Computed example of a mutant assay.
Amino acid sequence: MRVLIERTVDAAVPADRLWSYVTDWPRQGEWVPHTRVELVDPADPAHAVGGRIRAWSGLGPIGFWDTMTITGWREHGDGGGRCEVLHTGAVVRGEGEFVVEATGPSSSRFIWKEMAVLPLGRLGALGWRVVHTPVERLIDRGLDTMRRQVENTAH
């Protein structure tokens, strides 16, 4: 079973600043709860199709690697862009997407989409019914943290 997770947050910064912030992979640990992001291979392109990144999600030594390959990369004329990834790990599978759109000269919108493949068949689908609201709230808290961080670093 596949599920769509889509969350959005508006920020009072130009699109280019927001795009630069959300695609600074190591900085995602500042706003994605309980996650550390890094390049799989520093020789890979960090901001282009074929780049590989991985995210450790968990608490201390208990967690998992979410491995991803960048499958789409477009920068928009308004300063925003779109990054598409394929999740290739043992736990998280499916497609993900970050989009930044300009909503004005000093404002922008960040859209996070995941088309996740739930593990464990019917048991996974039942589990998703239980955890989807807390997962969405956790993501929303992370996006609010990201918004505050990027707005507070704006010049």
Rank of each mutant, 00 (worst) to 15 (best):
I111H: 10
T67F: 00
L123V: 14
A46M: 11
V135Y: 11
M146C: 13
G80S: 04
L118P: 04
P119W: 01
R122N: 10
H47I: 11
S57W: 05
M115E: 12
V40M: 05
W31A: 10
I111D: 10
G79S: 03
V135A: 14
M146R: 11
L39N: 08
L123Q: 14
I53A: 12
G89P: 04
A43C: 11
H132Y: 05
E84A: 07
T35Y: 01
I53R: 14
E136D: 13
V9Y: 01
E95T: 11
H155L: 15
V85G: 03
D24Q: 11
W128T: 10
R52W: 00
E114P: 06
W19T: 07
E151G: 09
V100N: 07
D66A: 09
L18Y: 00
R129Q: 12
L143R: 07
G127Y: 02
P119I: 04
G104E: 02
I5M: 09
Q149E: 06
T67Y: 01
V150C: 02
G104F: 01
V131A: 13
L4I: 07
D41A: 10
G72T: 14
V91T: 12
L4W: 01
R27V: 07
E30F: 01
M146V: 09
G127R: 03
T103H: 05
G80C: 03
F110D: 09
I5S: 08
E101S: 05
E30L: 07
E6V: 10
V13D: 00
Q149R: 13
V131P: 09
I62F: 04
R137V: 08
P61A: 10
G96C: 03
I62W: 03
L120Y: 08
G104K: 07
L143T: 03
L126I: 13
F64D: 06
T23G: 09
R27F: 04
G58F: 01
D78C: 15
E84P: 02
S107Y: 01
A102T: 02
G79F: 00
V100Q: 08
W73M: 10
G77E: 08
I5F: 01
G77T: 08
D78A: 15
T88F: 04
G94P: 05
R109H: 02
R52T: 03
T69Q: 12
L59R: 15
E136C: 14
V13G: 03
Q149W: 00
R7Y: 00
Q28N: 05
V22Q: 12
H132V: 08
F64A: 11
R141Y: 00
L120I: 10
R137I: 08
E6Q: 15
P33S: 09
T133W: 10
H34A: 14
H47V: 11
R82I: 12
P45N: 06
V150S: 01
D144Y: 03
G29F: 01
W112L: 13
E114Q: 13
D66V: 02
R122Y: 02
W65Q: 15
V40K: 06
G104P: 04
W112R: 15
I5T: 06
L126S: 15
V99G: 11
P45C: 05
G89A: 07
T153N: 14
A125K: 13
R148N: 07
L123E: 11
G72V: 15
L120Q: 14
H87D: 09
E6N: 12
D144F: 02
F98Q: 11
E97R: 15
I62E: 07
E95S: 11
